[in-house]
Amino acid sequence: MGKYANHEEFGVNAPINYREDTTSESFLNGMTAIAPPGMKPRTSRGRKFEEKTDFKASARWHHNFDLAMFGGSDIESKDYESGQLGLESKLNGIKRVPGRP
């Protein structure tokens, strides 16, 4: 079974997890793992990465995933950011499934 019980639970939880899990540390750890021996990524790139993974980026990510997988079933409108806010406001009735342990 997958991490989320249904698509609504995915729509509420996944963008929040995306924002919380896309940190400068996770970026730098990933880049360090693929860097050539003796090289490491600049910390400034990690900060820039984290700055670009805010609410707007998570809403756009979810919108694009939703279009690709479900034809835009959750946030069809052109104003997908308000659609994402509407989904996240449902969090009280939907189980919170954190991203990383």
Rank of each mutant, 00 (worst) to 15 (best):
F49I: 10
P36S: 14
G38R: 02
T43A: 15
G46Y: 03
G46N: 01
E50C: 04
T53V: 05
G38K: 03
S44Y: 06
F27A: 06
R45K: 12
R42I: 05
K52H: 05
P41R: 01
S24N: 10
A33S: 14
S44L: 06
A35V: 04
G46A: 03
T43C: 09
P37Y: 07
F27G: 04
T32M: 08
E25R: 03
G46P: 01
F49N: 07
A33E: 14
S44G: 12
M31K: 08
M39T: 15
K40R: 11
S26H: 04
R47D: 14
S44Q: 07
R45N: 15
I34K: 09
K52R: 09
G30C: 05
P41K: 02
E25D: 15
K52W: 02
T32I: 04
T53W: 05
T53P: 00
P41D: 02
E51Y: 00
I34P: 12
R45I: 08
P36Q: 13
R42P: 10
R47Q: 14
R42H: 15
E51L: 03
S24K: 03
S26M: 06
R45G: 13
K52Q: 09
S44C: 11
K52F: 05
G38A: 02
R47V: 13
P41L: 00
S44F: 07
G38C: 04
M39I: 12
P37F: 04
P37S: 12
S44K: 04
E25H: 06
S24M: 10
F49K: 03
S24V: 01
F27E: 03
R47S: 15
G38S: 05
G30N: 07
E50V: 02
M31I: 07
A33P: 09
N29T: 05
F49M: 10
M31L: 13
T43Q: 14
G30Y: 02
T43Y: 06
I34T: 12
P37Q: 07
G46H: 00
L28H: 00
